[in-house]
């Protein structure tokens, strides 16, 4: 049997989520003696492709340029490949683009599709998986009744693991006669991408005003972290919408999440509670965030954050 993993790239660069999907698939393939095929689209340099082998890819199929916003062409390409290779299981990370073409692919193949999967399957025949539901407030164990299955991973839950393997490249030419015209692409200003960041420094209304975000940005800079904020902070325009995390904003799952001057409302926690370690800094000892956090400091952010920056700089040097 064959497994196909999709290794997404952004302008020719892989991200952590791509490596996570590859190492997850490699472990699954090894455990069950399956063959693993890695699909990678567009022009990626050989040097970058070699990185995939560190996480367990050996057979890698690359394609000619294709726009990932064009979910019709993307899903058709993968489904054509499936027919050639008799693939039964597909692994994707949960990215903005894969969430457009993976469900399309499932409809084409008449397969089952599981999202927010957090672990390797507990059984393969039938396929049984554990997934996050209710904004990480619960897990669901679900079973497939289909012959073909698509697994979409919850970010940063399996993690990346290293495997050694040799790369065997082959090329696939697909047609893409897109009906989509790309007008422009705007890159967001933050240096570190929020959905991929290992560390997120997030702040709320406790920061009093947008002029005080220098402090938050400085902390983020010395940690190479992304910045985030609570909903009211983006609603009143102190910070851009793209930084809003929570039930109605982005879901993030970094290794470390700082909540500075954030009360810890249930809707906020829903988007951040998959973080491995959460640290809350709040003047109010009764703040709800302390019930969810692993570590807490009761204190004024304007005193605590500068000290934190100093101490972090100390250990980084």
């Amino acid at each position: 049997m064959k497994i196909l993993v999709f290794a997404e790239n952004w302008d020719g660069i892989f991200k952590k989520s791509s490596f996570e999907a590859v190492s997850y698939s490699r472990e699954l393939a090894e455990q069950n003696n399956y063959e693993l095929i890695t699909l990678c689209f567009n022009n990626v340099s050989e040097e970058e492709l070699n990185k995939l082998s560190k996480y367990g890819s050996s057979i890698v199929i690359t394609t000619n340029p294709i726009d990932k916003v064009d979910s019709i062409s993307m899903s058709k390409m993968i489904s054509d490949l499936t027919i050639q290779h008799d693939i039964k299981l597909f692994i994707f990370s949960s990215t903005y683009s894969s969430k457009m073409f993976a469900p399309r692919l499932s409809a084409k193949l008449n397969s089952s599709i599981f999202t927010n999967v957090v672990e390797l399957p507990s059984s393969l025949n039938p396929l049984k998986l554990k997934k996050k539901v209710f904004s990480s407030k619960a897990f669901e164990i679900a079973k497939s009744s289909s012959e073909k299955n698509i697994i979409m991973l919850h970010p940063n839950s399996y993690g990346v693991k290293e495997f050694s393997s040799d790369l065997k490249l082959s090329e696939l030419t697909t047609e893409s006669n897109t009906e989509i015209e790309i007008i422009n692409i705007k890159k967001s200003s933050g240096k570190v991408n929020l959905s991929e960041a290992d560390i997120v420094v997030s702040a709320g209304r406790g920061m009093k005003g947008p002029e005080n975000w220098d402090l938050i940005e400085e902390l983020a800079n010395c940690l190479n972290a992304a910045t985030a904020c609570s909903k009211p902070v983006s609603d009143i325009g102190w910070r851009p919408h793209s930084e809003h995390v929570g039930q109605t904003g982005k879901t993030v799952a970094p290794n470390l999440y700082f909540a500075i001057g954030i009360s810890g409302a249930i809707q906020h926690l829903a988007g951040v509670n998959s973080s491995k370690v959460m640290v809350a800094i709040n003047t109010d000892p009764e703040a709800s965030f302390f019930k969810a956090a692993h570590y807490g400091i009761v204190g004024d952010a304007f005193d605590v954050v500068p000290k934190l920056i100093e101490e972090i700089k100390n250990i980084k040097n």
Partner: peptide, 19 residues
Amino acid sequence: FIQSIEFNKPSENKECVFI
């Protein structure tokens, strides 16, 4: 296509360590 077998809740967080 899919059968739900069961739901469970994550184990409660340990107490917050105050510093």
